[in-house]
């Protein structure tokens, strides 16, 4: 594993991006990484990216302004992701829309991973200035995350176990989802909780479960139905944030 691969692994940078070059500023305790889409070839300074829809090689335009996101800390260094090409564009051949950046929400200064860490720290620490000091983020950035996610500092004590998990652990397992015997699953299945969703497989599954539902069935049968629903949310938890909020608040 070379240095770039090591950095990618340490900073959880996906396979669809490569590190073009990096710079460490020890005085500022800062690591800047310049990223390029994986496999994009340079042609006289330009880069091309293959449309996943039609295969057309799209020429990536240089960004008018370099884009930069505050990312995770590595050792004593605060890392920043920099991208020099336009990441949102339409394929000129098939018209499909693309956004190459999946690590941050539009307009965000922090990556999702960093937002997650800031959010966890806000929940655990009594004062938001402690969050800023420990993670090395600005007060404005921390307040933005606090406001965006509606967090209250230092109230994690009696929260769901998920609040104490690290983001990577949450990505890897879904043990934070309530078990099959949680009554909310039954409320979804029997229709007493009117779940709004536009996820087609969930709509199909709910239709089937509701047709099969028998309120007088023994608990094992009800749990078996809940298990199917939980299996769906375990698999599609990344795409089901709205639905999970409706079910568990």
């Amino acid at each position: 594993m070379d240095n770039k691969d090591l950095l990618k692994a340490a900073l959880k940078i996906g396979a669809d991006w490569d590190i073009d070059w990096h710079e460490v500023q020890h005085g500022k305790q800062r690591l800047d990484l310049w990223l390029v889409p994986a496999g994009s070839r340079g042609w006289f300074g330009g880069r091309r990216w293959k449309c996943g829809n039609c295969g057309h090689n799209i020429r990536l335009r240089d960004a008018d302004r370099r884009k930069r996101w505050r990312h995770l800390n590595i050792g004593t260094l605060a890392s920043y992701l920099n991208v020099g090409v336009e990441c949102e564009f339409d394929c000129p051949e098939c018209g499909s829309s693309h956004n190459l950046v999946s690590w941050a929400e539009p307009g965000a200064d922090l990556t999702r991973e960093m937002e997650q860490r800031v959010a966890n720290a806000i929940c655990r620490l009594p004062d938001i200035s402690d969050v800023c000091q420990i993670l090395g983020v600005g007060i404005d950035e921390a307040l933005t995350v606090q406001q965006k996610l509606g967090l209250k500092p230092g109230n994690a004590g009696a929260e769901a176990p998920a609040r104490t998990k690290t983001p990577s652990a949450m990505d890897e397992d879904a043990s934070w989802l309530p078990g099959d015997d949680h009554p909310a699953w039954t409320r979804v299945i029997d229709g007493s909780l009117a779940l709004k969703t536009d996820a087609l497989p969930l709509q199909f599954m709910l239709n089937r479960l509701r047709l099969q539902h028998d309120p007088n069935a023994p608990p094992e049968k009800r749990h078996a139905q809940a298990r199917q629903l939980r299996a769906y949310f375990t698999k599609y938890r990344h795409q089901s944030t709205n639905e999970l909020r409706q079910i568990f608040g």
């Binding site: 690590w103 937002e115 997650q116 959010a119 609040r163 949450m170 089901s240």
Partner: peptide, 15 residues
Amino acid sequence: SVKPVKPLTGVNGYG
């Protein structure tokens, strides 16, 4: 559709 996975963004695992 085949899209990049949107990472989890919330503090309680789903929001």
